[in-house]
Design a protein around this nucleic acid. Sequence first.
DNA 1: GTGAAAGCGCTAACAT
DNA 2: ATGTTAGCGCTTTCAC
Lengths: 323, 323
Amino acid sequence: MGTDRRLPSQRDVSAVLNPSSTVKIAEATRRRVWAAAEELGFRPNEMARSLRSRSSNVLGLVSSEIATTPYAVAIIKGAQEAALARGMMLLIIDTDGAPEITDDALAAMTRWRVEGLILAADHHRAIDPHATGTPTVLVNCFAADGSLGGIVPDERQGGRLATETLLAAGHRRIGFINGPDDFPASTGRLAGYLDAHRAAGLPVDPRLSRTGDWWQESARGATSELLGLDDPPTALFCANDWMAMGAYDAIRERGLGIPDDVAVIGFDNRIEIAAHLSPTLTTIALPYREMGRRAVEYLVADGPATDLVPCPLVPRQSVRAPS
Amino acid sequence: MGTDRRLPSQRDVSAVLNPSSTVKIAEATRRRVWAAAEELGFRPNEMARSLRSRSSNVLGLVSSEIATTPYAVAIIKGAQEAALARGMMLLIIDTDGAPEITDDALAAMTRWRVEGLILAADHHRAIDPHATGTPTVLVNCFAADGSLGGIVPDERQGGRLATETLLAAGHRRIGFINGPDDFPASTGRLAGYLDAHRAAGLPVDPRLSRTGDWWQESARGATSELLGLDDPPTALFCANDWMAMGAYDAIRERGLGIPDDVAVIGFDNRIEIAAHLSPTLTTIALPYREMGRRAVEYLVADGPATDLVPCPLVPRQSVRAPS
DNA sequence: GTGAAAGCGCTAACAT
DNA sequence: ATGTTAGCGCTTTCAC
């Protein structure tokens, strides 16, 4: 019975259980350790591990009002996925937008010695970031002073894609109902609308652009005006799905059909709306999950300072397929 | 110049910075410690603290598909709030419903030595919980074998409240469009519907109850049938907001008005729908945030084994105010 | 290849 | 009221 009955030392156990250890351990020892760990249900204590190795393997995510906003949660989800895939923990705190909670959250992150910090916002906007000693990425927001890298949706590409989708379906007069000027989403989506026209060699009729307030009613009015023009648009690009919903109302009021009389494309892909209007709404999605994922990559691999994530098309019924 | 220049010992620092310490420290020492901590930006290392004190001050929340479901996120939010208020960290992992991720999540929770575990589901249902060595609460779900305490919405009280709201508005014939039988939400809401009738001394006309599939179309059909009856209902209780949306369609098709010809009440308070229909939808809210909050209380204070959280009314325009 | 020993940053028990 | 010391559960030298 040549079985070695001595206990492996602590060091061996550590090396076996720790995939990242470089220490060489005999196969026999490995097996004994695994078997014992299995039998005892042993789980290494992460606190002790972190303390000793002076690396917590923890990333922090502090978000403002994300967890209360139906869709932006996907940012958290994406970050979570990426972190777990790398064997890291994600510490998440949502602040509801309250500054004192943000301070507390940041303090907590420091006490837990997070190795990187993700600051995320519920909608694309500028923020005034606290300086912490920790590597930090911004998601869905950017530093007003440009001091920090930010991962944001490529609004311009999205606006262009929306417009091109309409162009591809044969439309030549495309109305645009935008949000207020002071949102990055508005300026970006407008730029994309213009880009698409330019690329197609088509003139832009300024009378076809209106500004709404992101809400349904404003777009209903704007759509009515647009449809009342001598040479009305045959398609409408609404800068968000709520406004697309308002456009639907106005189009129906005139007894017109979607997509045959007027095609409509939205932005944001709020599926509770987009997938349930009739006809269902073709729209551009905000790549939240991907943004969360990239935030983690950025922190661990030191990615680019600013990252524009493309917004994909979600084709549904409100735009005819190209012929 | 009586200033004491000696450094306070480690023990004093620990006692001062630790609110829960019972050790008595002189006021002068306290001040010196605070000042130094402030100046150095000192933040105690939570890992070391947890390791030594053999208590992690961490709670774990593992949820299935919550972070991808627009509203149930509020469970996480509520739990977060309550945990932070008690100075505890909440470790959150959403599993997307995949069993192997759940196992990983549970293993991670163990390695971080969580002192309590919250298992949450995206909709009210029975689950088959893993046994872990850690105190566990279920939220929005219950153990099929009754082995674990669960915090769930009081569907029955909600169904009763919905029905009573209609009764209070003067309605006597109330249609009920329920979800499929095999959901706790369906059986509970039906029981509440019956309760309200019984309490009001009103008979229940079985022809007024229909079963939908939670989706808009099914309720549209059911509503049409109901409205085609010789003695049609003057009010409709739809077991969720999507179905209320379908009821709206059917009511409009008949040229009837809401709430004057037919009142409608929904359930779930999916605000993206409820607040944006016209007229806006009166509905019953699921108390997700409160449920998350209670889960934490349960774990730290050893609350009741099963907890039914009341569902509040959210009055909007689809039911006339009581006269 | 393996074992022994030190020490991460704290808290708690024991002295003074 | 304050200082000293041991040790939480690991990882990492360092000697063998």
